[in-house]
Design a protein around this nucleic acid. Structure first.
Lengths: 137, 137
DNA sequence: CTGAATCCACCAAGATACTG
DNA sequence: CAGTATCTTGGTGGATTCAG
């Protein structure tokens, strides 16, 4: 292990790291993926159980979201040839690993998102007052 | 106040966390935001420095991305009325805080994304063999 | 140099209806 | 119950041009 005690001293040798993040975000940054992962956190669910757990999702988008999660090895899909048919979805190890950065993101959202929204509001107000010559609306 | 005192204080107690994540992802999950934050990690940069640091970005998208970051209090925008004009962008405290979950995401990407891509490939191959009657292509 | 403005292509995602 | 198939649309982002 030659001399180097810490193999990760520098964070950003180039922006290929950023690209890795961006690509990951491109995958999980759609409208429903993290919600699906979230509701599956507690354990396996049937198709319609997932559906009911994510209010507002359409059948089409749920099917697409789950299929993509299965394709990427983040959830398993288990069919039971019963009548009526039954399909269970469950997070894989890989999928559960994803919960770690998601929790980190949640942590940021809980702690700092209010400040962000406040800044957004200030920005909007500033823009409005500028457009109306510094006069309150 | 007849009967109904509280319309509905709790919307989704367990999954509102997922919504918070989803909303955050909706904000930073676009094509360029994390890349911009990433290149600004090392310190303030001028407009064209950022531009050159993010290969492939158009003027329009860079301007939009930076403006949104400024609006949400994640970066500061400092104009110098010189000729030629100069504008510096720099991460705020809020913006630097965002680096924490982003690093967590990068950690996942580095460690687990190869497995995800492998699963995706297996899935594609499986689909192909299925469509061609179990025969290798 | 640092943008703003305009036009346009593409695709994610919703609505709806149908199927095994 | 667990999906597919088809159509439609709003928004994201690219290319180009104009401006202070």
């Amino acid at each position: 292990m030659s001399g180097t005690h810490k193999p990760v001293p520098r964070i950003d040798t180039s922006h290929e790291h950023c690209r890795a993040i961006a690509e990951t975000l491109d995958r999980i940054g759609d409208k429903w993926t993290v919600l699906a992962v979230g509701v599956l956190e507690q354990g396996p669910l049937r198709y319609n159980e997932v559906r009911r757990s994510i209010s507002g999702i359409s059948q089409r988008m749920l099917t697409l979201t789950l299929k993509n999660l299965e394709r990427d090895g983040l959830v398993t899909r288990t069919m039971y040839a019963t009548i009526p048919p039954r399909v269970d979805y469950e997070l894989t190890e890989l999928g559960r690993n994803l919960l770690v950065p998601l929790r980190s993101l949640r942590e940021w959202a809980v702690r700092h998102r209010p400040a962000m929204l406040a800044a957004r509001k200030r920005f909007a107000d500033k823009g409005r007052s500028a457009r109306f010559g510094q006069r309150a609306l």
